Amino acid sequence: MTTTADIWLPYPAAELGPLPESLTYLHWDGRGDFPADPARCAFYTVPYLQGTEAACRPLERMTRVRVVQTLTAGVDHMLPALPLLPPGALLCNAGELHNTSTAELALALILAAQRGIPDAVRAQPAERWAPAFRPSLADRRVLIVGFGGIGAAIEDRLLPFEVAEVIRVASRARTTARGPVHGVDELPGLLPRAEIVVLATPLTETTRGLAGADFLARMPDGALLVNVARGPVVDTKALLAELDSGRLRAALDVTDPEPLPAGHPLWHAPGTLITPHVGGPSTAFLPRAARLLRGQLARFAAGEPPQYVVATGGAPLA
């Protein structure tokens, strides 16, 4: 690498720890004017939580960019940018960055929904003492759809709570040290066994609407659907039908549409807990983001390929 390679970062370089000295670091957080000519940028770190428009805005002019690094596990917001990437440019996701924080939230949503914490929060201002018999997490069968890094981190946090079984599902069946991972084609036979279903899969054309009417109908009465993936993985209309009937419950960190607009029926659906897409943003984020960028930039400066490549300029999303 040469010192003429501009590296765009959404945080000041000094906040990220020691970085390769052979590179020139420019700060752009997705707002305001560009810090320099985008055509000089070789490594572009996409601003975090600034939306698709900000993420993609400089790419048309980044004619020599070699690596586009997101700080998100999912890259669906970058799909409009794929045709803008120069041939051979690499799109990378955040790898393990969000495993800890997202798994932590998934566990919190499960526990809160199972033990009736939203009802207790609503009862407290009214000074209403309302004990009730609630389902535990212990002895439940939990199905994780999307058994990658986040799915494995969720399993790690479930096991100390004495769940009866963790059923793992990914795009393809395989055998791991943890046990079998079922293929997504096996879901029809697995869903009736699961009292809690956690969605942690990336959003792709294959997973869009995966949790539709047939998927939900196969879940047993009283089961809990937890979505920490992306909103469109769930068919909202089909989910509302199940929630309004009282047959299923839901704990959703993501929704479709998103942000969920005022007046949307999901806000008031029975047995539903909603958080505003906060699986990633926590105090765990910045230290892990800095570690990710230090590693990726060290490889870049050394002329080595980056980790976590999900697409290449001129090729479809992997």
Rank of each mutant, 00 (worst) to 15 (best):
V226T: 08
P265V: 07
A213D: 02
I196L: 08
P192V: 09
A173W: 09
L216T: 10
E195D: 13
A269W: 02
P192Y: 06
G222R: 15
S171I: 13
G231N: 11
E162G: 14
L224A: 04
L273V: 00
K237V: 15
I196G: 02
G179H: 10
V254S: 08
A269S: 01
D221A: 14
P232I: 10
P220Q: 00
I274W: 11
D156V: 02
L225P: 09
W267P: 11
L216Q: 02
H182A: 14
A262F: 13
P259V: 14
T176Y: 00
L216V: 12
A217C: 08
R178G: 00
L190G: 11
G212R: 12
L203F: 10
T272G: 07
R178K: 11
T204L: 09
A213S: 06
V163R: 00
G209W: 13
P188N: 12
A250L: 06
F215A: 04
V197N: 07
V163S: 00
P202K: 12
N227C: 02
L203D: 14
G209M: 13
P276R: 06
R230P: 05
P202N: 13
L252I: 08
E195W: 03
V198Y: 01
H264C: 12
L248I: 06
I274E: 06
A213W: 02
R249P: 04
V198K: 00
L273P: 03
L216W: 02
H277V: 08
L266G: 07
A173L: 08
A269L: 01
D214Y: 08
D214E: 13
P265D: 04
G246S: 03
T176P: 00
L191E: 10
L199E: 08
V166L: 07
L224T: 05
L273N: 04
P180W: 03
A211M: 04
R168K: 08
R249Q: 12
E162Y: 15
T255L: 07
T176F: 00
P257N: 02
A238K: 04
E205L: 15
L158R: 09
S245T: 14
H264W: 12
R174E: 10
V278T: 14
A251I: 13
P180F: 04
L216S: 02
L252K: 10
P160N: 12
L190M: 09
G183Q: 01
I274K: 12
G212A: 05
A250P: 01
L187M: 10
P265L: 10
A213N: 03
P265R: 14
V166M: 04
T206N: 15
